[in-house]
Structure formats: C-alpha cells, structure tokens
Design a binder for these strands. Sequence first.
RNA 1: AGGGGAUUCGCCAAGUGGUAAGGCACCGCCCUUUGGAGGCGGCAUUCGGGGGUUCGAAUCCCUCAUCCCCUG
Length: 352
Amino acid sequence: MKIAVLASGGVDSSVVLKLLQREGHDVTAFYLKIWLEDELSFLGNCPWEEDLQYLREICAAGGVPLQIINLQKEYHQEVVSYALREIKAGRTPNSDLLCNSKIKFGKFYEKIGPQFDLVASGHYADKTVIDGQHFLTRSKDTFKDQTYFLAHLNQEQLKRAVFPLGPYLKSEVRDLAKQFKLPNQARKDSQGICFLGNIKYPDFVRFHLGEKPGDLINYDTGEIVGRHEGYWFYTIGQRKGIKLSGGPWFVIKKDIAANTVYISNTYHDLSKKRDHFEVEDLHWISGPPTPQNLQKLQVKVRHGEKLYDATLSLLDGRRGKVTIEGSDQGFAAGQFAVFYSGEFCLGCGTII
RNA sequence: AGGGGAUUCGCCAAGUGGUAAGGCACCGCCCUUUGGAGGCGGCAUUCGGGGGUUCGAAUCCCUCAUCCCCUG
C-alpha cells in the first residue's frame, strides 16, 4: 500500500513510520506547515525547526521520502478564522477537532491526491470495519485515547485513514521508539493547540481581538466585584486570571451584549452543576445511532476526562438535548460533546 | 477640638509575652495534542515608624504617623 504519513517529528508519528515500513508499505512522510503566519512570530519561537530536524534525521536513516506541505493559508481559512469567530462570539472553540477534519484528513488529502491509498497518523485511536462501513473505535490506551479529537471526521475521511498506534499503550510506543533507536525517543509530548506552538493562548487572542474592559459580577449577589480585560479571555469554569481575592473565583456565565463576566466563589456547590445541555450541528461518523442507542450513550465533554453515561434526545436532525448520569460544571458553549457507544466513537455535537 | 477603634505578605485574615496559621492572588512544576479544571511546591527573619520594659514582644508601656467611627 502507498501510505501518506502525517509526521510531526514527535515520537508517536515517528513510530508510525517505522511500524508501517516494517509491514512492508510504501510510506512517504509529510510534514504539514500549519503554523501561524510570521506576523505572530514575535510572540513565541516556533519549535518547528526542531521538529523538522528530527524528522529529517529519521526519514534519512529509514530511507523514507519526506515532503513539506504548506497549508498555512488553508489552516487560517478553515481553523484560525473559525476559532476567532467563536471566541469573539463568546464561545469556546476547540480548534483541534477541526484541524483534523478540515486539514489533516481534509485539505491535505486534496493536496496529495488519490495517488496515496491511505493517510496514517500517530493518533491514539483505532478502527473497525463492519460490512464496508468504517467505525472509529477507542485505542487500547484508554487514558491516552484521542478519538475525542477525531470525532469530526466523516465516513470518507475515515475510510482512507489509518491509525497504527491503536493497539498500543503509550508506554509501548515509547518502547518501540527505543527499539527502533529513534533519536526523538525521549522527546516530550507536545501539548496545547497545535498551531500556537509556544505562543500563549491569551496573547493570540489579544493580538487579534484586543482588549475590551468590562465588569466582573458576583453571580450570587449581583454585585460588581472587579473588572475584566475582555470577555474573550474567559471561559466557563475558568479559575485562573480573575485576580480577585476572596476566591477561588470561577467563571459561571458571560453576557456578551453587556460585556460582563459572571463569577462565583461557590462554583463547586451543587447548585452550579448541571446534568444536561443542548448540542447543535450533530455529526455522525458512520450514520446516526439507533433510537435504542440514543438511550444508552456515553459522552465526553472534553478531552481526557471521564466518560459520562448519557442519553440524547433529538430535537431535530441537527440538534439535541443531552442528559448525563451525574453532573458537571464545565459545559462551555462552542466545545464539542463527543458521543460513544462502548468502544465506538459515534460522532459529536457542539455544545450550545 | 474632644472621645473611641484600627494599622500583620498584593488582598482577606489568625495570632494578646515564648520565638509569624490559613485562604485568595501570583509564580514554578506535574497532568493534558482544545479552552478549562485538578495535583504538588514556592511565596512576611517579619508584624505602620521610633524608643522602652523583658531572658524573650506582633502581642506590655511611651511617642510619632495614617485611617475609621461618634460628639462638637
């Protein structure tokens, strides 16, 4: 098989190169340049030179062709502008889901064309094929599982995607990296929104949206207790950066029209928890779940944390109400709720 | 002008003779391919200034300064 590998210079995607090569596939490594335009370079040094250095070394040693694809323009159009639009609207976007569906498994494929059979990535995720239908399933490493970030892929994209790390634990991947004698075997995992690199999120927001001071209001008393620099620097459940004494203070609610941010120091009280929320833009990777399935789903409200048992009642084709078993305090509009049925990742919706 | 009260880390605040709690904020690290959350650690040789009493004071005394309240 002719496989295009999304390679970042990190441990995971480097191990993918090796694994596929070992299986006898014809692999080509692609480094996607999705970095922000240089206008922002003063905010932080991009580590992509280091990425490429490792990648070049690994590809050279393994006889793997390496191509660098510039998708900065596409990335800006599809992801950055979305993020800014959402932030400005007072919502909390998750750029990385769209990065996968729009860029890594979207524009990238358009760019390289059908000459490659598959696109492989170093995501901790797996696939199952049933009757020609492709399903996204959770990786063996349930802690590291990254299906959350892949929930926005569509069937076509999933069909040509392959996730070789699915059957491995992170620790096993590290071991493989050692076995393969990869120079980046001990490299620290990357984190944060991929396009930001070392740039701090608030700096990015401030650069594009500036500041817009307004009142901080105590949600419980209605009293004005301080000032904020712009509602877009806050998200629901946020604690850091409120600066007021008497806390800890947590963001409860934002009023965009009034440019006020409501905070509370009783965030952990039961009264602030909710067991339901609404979603829109429901998206199913392999077709909508059956009515019976809707009654016994699991849902993730953010990456990494626990799965809630949940039910989803559809309001219309694209909207629905999710009720979770238990309660949570951090439902932020704009974030993705990702639905699971056992090992299967079914799709996602945007929290309203 | 009298009378009373207060002054401890950026903020709040314990401590009333025995050698400066705690919370918030802030900083660092960990966790984490989103935003958050969470965990761990750091954070006043010093108690408004100056004297004094005492083996020993933030705690007692004197004095100065500032602030608040009440009565003119």
